[in-house]
Structures are given as C-alpha cells and as structure tokens.
Amino acid sequence: MIREITLGQYYPADSVLHRLDPRVKLFGTLLYVISLFLFQSFTGYIVATVFLASLIAISHVPVKFMFRGLKAIFILLIFTAVLNMFLTPGRELVSFWKITITIEGLRFAAFMILRLTYLITGSSIMTLTTTPSNLTDGLEKSMRWMNILKVPVHEIAMMMSIALTFIPVLLEETDRIIKAQQARGADFESGNLIHRIRALVPILVPLFVSAFRRANDLALAMESRCYRGGEGRTKMRPLRYERRDIIAYLVLALYIACIITVGILF
C-alpha cells in the first residue's frame, strides 16, 4: 500500500515541456502560481484555463496523472470551500439555524477550489515533466547568487537530490519493517488515534537507525568517488539555454501580460 505514495513523480515522455531547461519550468511555475492571485474575474479564469489546458496538451502526460496530486489535498479543498461558503458576508442565499450561505460565499468558494486545483495541477506539470535531478540542477544553478549570502547552495541541492533518490529505498524499508512487526503480532489498524500513533514508534525507531546507517555508507561511497563539495565539480550535462527556452520565456511573458490586463480591465 505504501508504494502508491508518489513524490516528485516524473512521467517519462518526449515532449517540448520535457526538454525545456528546468530553470524555465521553475521560474514559470512560480510566475504561474503568483498569476493565479492577480485576478478576481471570470475572464481571468478563462485565460488561466486556456494556458493550463494547452500546457497539459503539449506535455504528453495522461490527464489522470495531472489530477493524481489533487487526491492528497482533497480534504483541504473541501474544508476551504466550506469555510468560504459559510463565512463570507454578503447577500443571503439560504439560511437555516445559525448558518447562512451567501451568493458571494458560493462564488468565492468556487473560485478558491479552482485556484487551488490550478495551483496543484500547474506544479504537477513541472514535477511530471522534469526529472528530480534536473530539478535540483535547475535550483542549484538559478540560486547560485545566494552564495554571496553564504547560503550553501550546492550542499542544499545535493541533499535534495539524495533525499529524492532515497525515497523509494526508505519506502521499501518501511514496508519491510511494518511487515516484520506485524509478523510478530503488532497491530497498526485498530484502536483510537493515540493508540495508533503509539504503534508507529516501533516502525520509526528502526527506520531512523537504518537511515543513519545508510547515510554513513553513502558518505563513504561518495568520498571514495572523490566527492569534495561543489568546488571544481563539472556536470555531464551542464544546463545551457537553447532557442526553445527563450521562446518559452516569451510565451510566459505574454501570458503574464494577458493576466495583468485582464486583472485591470475586468
């Protein structure tokens, strides 16, 4: 069951989006997320929808993968919607007992759901079309200026990529520990919340111990392969902007211009 959890799920395919420089995708996602909060009107959503839909279309990733990420935040979505629905003041639509639903509330709730859905789907497109290592490469290169502020950019990027490599390994390990404990009669599925949380301790302790052991092994392996930090290190595939990346930046600029215009006009 534990294998179903996907994090940084990459979908291998050959599309323009896959080939784009990760820096473009990172920057684009950031701008896209910001842009979702720049408008209030219905027209704005049309622009955002068209943009998102065309991205999905050219990504060659099946649509069901896009919405997989939404499952995780389903409860959050409902919660936000309900709160917005009941707590926004305005014209009354229905009212019973102490609860009133307003037209504004309904509108706001719908927009909030759309916004969050778009936000998650938009960032899903990035993670689905970019390999984790490419992503960390992109982060490392675009954050390099922070070195001036004594931020250890290379080290952080390296940690991220190691964490990503080890997610499947540790998931498997957790699965194994759970089974081992169950085989000896441990019960993880019944009892109240506190009981269940306490049942996790015998899973977490061995998991951490093994994670430390693995970290030690990995450090040795890295050192014996001449790892000595980011200095003097080269890349097999250094990031370089190509023509398609420039075009992508232009498209992005156009989209932002559209959104801002719409935000001002409507």
Partner: peptide, 27 residues
C-alpha cells in the same frame, strides 16, 4: 542501494568523473 547517488543509472556513473572536474564531453 547505499552507494547509488544518481536518480538514473547514467547520472550515477557520471558522479565520479564529475567530482574530478572532467569536461562534459569526456564524461
């Protein structure tokens, strides 16, 4: 498992030469 650094095979093999500062084409 504990000596794999890259997320794909090719990257993992490239890790050593990258640390040695070798030119991309050569890697």
């Amino acid at each position: 498992e504990n000596q794999m650094i890259g997320t794909i095979v090719e990257e993992d093999v490239a890790f050593g030469p990258e640390n040695m500062g070798i030119e991309p084409e050569n890697i």
